[in-house]
């Protein structure tokens, strides 16, 4: 099949998605402030176009969750997230932009929840609640002093930017849908290996750690290395396994996103990175204090 035939087939197979994205583009361009200060053209037509576009884009995947409640939650969260994101980047008042950003963040957390990440959803809500409040303070402190500012009523060249971004979105979507099997679904590892290791460890530790059940105990490093070697041997016997971080893999008893599994991944495989992240937070804190203006220098 030649390149042009492939392109034609691609366009025909994804016609619903392409038309939806075009509607969405027109919605964004309708609501986006122009290059000169002009009165708003009204949000309703742009909002309708955006809603139709987002719904059509999601419909074009022709997929449903097995659970009806999950399906309803997916639609609610993704539509709220994408429509609020669109309203946020087109808002003429930064206060509204911050509000829509908060809504988009909450909906993204709902999507995290649907993707087996409850801890991450809670953490994101907590972190961004503070972030949004601080942003509000900044907006009220800095932007609202002079009333409606000219730079909020105008935007740069919207059409080429929107076009480029949607070309990026379409390309990413097509590439992801044609993803090779390597990044496709991998079944959870059977935890017979880990259970066997934990059981022997439990027998060893039974005298020294009374009350500590085998399942509650964090295995020491040499044991984990032995497990890893055993897993590597088993994998070599069956088929090549690309994943090397054994602690991060979900097992049947601890599926993806469980607190224990996530903790083992963070404080097992990524312990050094966790320490580094703490250091980076400290450095950023110092930097922010150094950059922020001081009152003695005539600031604010």
């Amino acid at each position: 099949m030649s390149g042009s035939e492939q392109l034609t087939a691609l366009l025909q197979n994804n016609s619903v998605a392409i038309v939806s994205m075009a509607l969405w583009i027109f919605g964004i361009l309708w609501m986006m402030p122009g290059r000169k200060v002009t009165p708003s053209r009204g949000v309703i037509p742009g909002l309708v176009l955006t809603l139709t576009g987002v719904a059509g884009l999601l419909l074009s995947f022709n997929a449903v969750y097995a659970d009806v409640s999950e399906e309803v939650m997916f639609w609610a969260f993704s539509i709220i997230a994408l429509v609020c994101a669109t309203l946020m980047i087109t808002a003429r008042n930064p206060v509204y932009a911050a509000l829509f950003f908060a809504l988009a963040t909450l909906s993204t957390c709902g999507l995290f929840m649907l993707q087996n990440a409850p801890f991450l959803a809670a953490a994101t809500v907590i972190v961004y609640a503070g972030a949004v409040i601080v942003t509000f303070l900044f907006v009220i402190m800095l932007a609202q002093q002079s009333g409606a500012a000219g730079y909020d009523q105008t935007a740069g060249r919207a059409a080429p930017t929107v076009l480029a971004s949607f070309v990026l979105l379409g390309t990413v979507s097509v590439l992801v849908s044609m993803a090779p099997p390597e990044i496709s679904t991998v079944p959870p590892v059977d935890d017979s290996l880990r259970l066997a290791g934990a059981a022997t460890a439990g027998e060893d530790a039974a005298g020294t750690a009374p009350g500590g059940g085998a399942s509650m105990r964090i295995a020491p490093v040499d044991e984990l290395l032995a497990q890893e070697a055993a897993a590597a041997a088993a994998a070599e016997a069956n088929k090549p396994e690309p994943v090397v971080n054994l602690l991060s893999r979900a097992t049947v008893s601890h599926p993806v996103g469980s607190m224990k599994g996530l903790g083992r991944s963070l404080f097992g495989d990524y312990l050094f990175a966790v320490e580094l992240a703490g250091t980076i937070l400290l450095i950023a804190c110092i930097g922010a204090i150094a950059i922020a203006p001081r009152r003695e220098e005539g600031a604010l």
């Binding site: 995947f61 980047i89 942003t135 730079y151 909020d152 935007a155 990026l168 979105l169």
Partner: peptide
């Protein structure tokens, strides 16, 4: 796949806003 496209769309929308808007915040 749908969720991945929602993520990509959030990225694209954020990119549009970053490239066109003029308010630092």
């Amino acid at each position: 796949l749908r969720t991945l496209v929602v993520g990509a769309a959030l990225f694209a929308i954020g990119a549009i806003g970053f490239l066109t808007r003029r308010n630092l915040i």
